[in-house]
Computed example of a mutant assay.
Amino acid sequence: KSDNSNLKWLVTELGSDCLTVPDKDGNTAVHLAAQQQPVDSLQFIFEQTGVEMFRLKNNRGETPVDVVESDRCRTDRSAKRAWISSTRLEASRPPAGSSAPTAASAGAKKQLDSCSFTDWDFIRQDNKKQLIGRGGFVCKVYKALTDRNQTVAVKVLPLSGTGQSGKLQKAVEMEKRGVEILKRLSHPNIVQFFKCEQKSNGLYIFTELVSGHSLFELMQRLNFLHCQPQGAILHRDIKSSNAMLNNEGVIKLIDFGLAKEIVGTCGLSTGVDPKGTPYFLAPELFMGEDDSIPYSAKTDVWAFGCTVYELTAMQPPDANIQQFRIAVLRCAGREMPQIAD
Results as ranks from 00 to 15, higher is better:
K129A: 12
I132D: 02
G136W: 08
F137M: 05
V138I: 15
C139M: 15
V141H: 10
L145G: 00
L145T: 08
R148E: 06
R148Y: 04
K155I: 01
L157A: 00
G163F: 07
Q164M: 07
Q164L: 08
S165E: 15
G166N: 11
K167C: 14
E173F: 08
E175S: 07
G178L: 05
E180R: 13
R184Q: 14
L185A: 06
H187C: 05
P188W: 03
I190W: 04
F194R: 10
K195W: 13
C196V: 15
E197V: 14
K199Y: 04
S200W: 09
G202S: 15
L203A: 14
L203N: 12
Y204A: 05
I205T: 13
T207R: 03
T207K: 01
S211C: 10
G212P: 03
H213V: 09
S214Y: 03
L215M: 15
F216N: 13
E217V: 07
M219L: 13
N223R: 06
N223Q: 10
F224K: 05
L225F: 03
H226I: 01
C227M: 14
G231T: 02
G231A: 07
R236H: 03
K239C: 08
M244Y: 08
M244L: 14
G249Y: 04
L253C: 11
I254N: 03
